[in-house]
Design a protein around this nucleic acid. Structure first.
Lengths: 255, 255
DNA sequence: CTTGACATTGACGCTGCGTCATGGTTTAGA
DNA sequence: TCTAAACCATGACGCAGCGTCAATGTCAAG
């Protein structure tokens, strides 16, 4: 006949499919206090507590934090909606991010397999091309700020197709250079690649021999460049620098 | 001219866009050890370390755990692919789960707004209908195990359409009852809803008056039922019990 | 010689509990 | 009535990946 049911921790925990530990936790942080405490010190929960717990678990399954839940249950429905919308946004962002990660993983797997001839290029293009281009700009600025304007002007004059081609050619130069590591920097093949590098730069501006040498030096000594090239191969920074140095010294840069 | 570059923690940290704390952490867990340590006790990193750090950060951005990363870097490429595929799976599951959560949030918002007449039903249907049906079965079993067989037989004889209808009618009964809370249990409207409840039960088996009373009692006293109904409204369990009691006492159950 | 930037080693904090450890309470069965 | 099985309580550590002091030593520049 009694209208008031009272639960022990285990009973309530089983009801809500949580563990007693969870209830104790909710107690200590004040999210769900026992309705009263028995003479033996045991926690006791009534129907109201059971209902509150249900609500807590509902929001918890939506992945809201306990603090947010506490706020929600303390506020009227009006605020609840705003909170939920906000939470929805957050979840959507997580989804977007996860999609990106999955895409990157797919690319990486292709790269590991070496299944497509483009994979290396694409990884390079998508992952660091931009960064690298920015660095190149910065280095050029160190020698002549006016180059930036010229570079920018030329770049804008290209079609989207041209731009893609130029970027990919730039990336390919370094890839090819890795393949030549160990050769003599003065080797004809090596110098040919350096010449292509030179040509590629000219898509942006007219580098003087000093600038070329400066770039070569920066590729090895400037940590921003060095790390990037070391990412392709640990020996690349030093090799590039020596090859470029040889190139400039040979007078090829002036021709 | 030097070929070997060496970084301090700050320098390397800035390069990789992490904090010195992160490098110290990687050191303590053995993921990335300094290349050597200076006389002053300072950590020193070389190019190889910088490269390794780059790889670590790459995988970290894919949200792999540090331990997994350590394993990846220790293994050849072959195993790396398997790990990535597995990780991809995990990410995909997260996406699926997030989609579910978002859908539930949308439903909940509708529910809060009370914008659709069906929202309550649907929330009820999707969220607890199954659980409730199971409980009802269990209660029946307490009175006569043979009822299970009959109930199961009838249920199987229905079309999918019938089943959906029966479930929704069942849910609606409790919703309607909530709307009548506060009325006299003997009120005609209340008794009409109880009658619908009775009819709904008959879709499963032929409940005797004793069973009906037993169910009413269980709805209030059995925590599994009570919590469920209290979830709809704290006052519902007791109200339902009284209303059913009145219904049976009036002889309506026998007619 | 002073400052300021950087380095070191602890050690606690955060999220939401899981998981002992240690010891008292209740309950059902022999 | 005694005992074993369950259940209760309060700590306190663990986890993942660092963030964030705190206390103290080192180094390069003015």
């Amino acid at each position: 006949m009694s209208n008031t049911y009272s639960y022990t921790v285990k009973q309530l925990a089983d009801l809500a499919s949580v563990t007693p530990r969870t209830l104790r936790h909710y107690d200590t942080i004040g999210l769900l206090r026992p309705s009263f405490i028995g003479d033996n010190g045991y926690r006791r929960y009534d129907e109201a507590a059971a209902l509150r717990l249900q609500q807590i678990r509902f929001y918890r399954e939506l992945d809201l934090g306990l603090e947010e839940i506490a706020a929600l249950l303390a506020q009227p429905d009006f605020d609840a909606e705003a909170t939920l919308r906000q939470h929805r946004e957050a979840l959507q962002q997580r989804v977007d991010r996860l999609h990106q990660l999955i895409a990157t993983i797919d690319k990486t797997i292709l790269h590991l397999r070496g299944q497509t001839e483009m994979s290396t290029d694409e990884l390079f293009a998508g992952f660091d091309e931009e960064t690298q281009a920015r660095y190149e700009q910065e280095a050029a600025e160190m020698y002549d700020p006016k180059i930036v304007a010229e570079s920018s002007r030329r770049w804008k004059s290209y079609t989207a197709e041209d731009r893609t081609r130029i970027q990919r050619e730039g990336g390919q130069v370094y890839q090819d250079m890795v393949a030549l590591l160990g050769r003599d920097p003065a080797d004809a093949d090596v110098q040919a690649v350096v010449a292509r590098w030179h040509q590629n730069l000219r898509a942006f501006y007219e580098p003087t021999p000093d600038i070329l040498r400066g770039l070569g030096h920066a590729y090895e000594e400037d940590p921003r460049f060095a790390t990037f090239f070391a990412g392709l191969h640990p020996g690349l920074p030093a090799f590039l620098n020596r090859a470029i140095d040889t190139y400039v010294a040979s007078g090829a840069a002036g021709r």
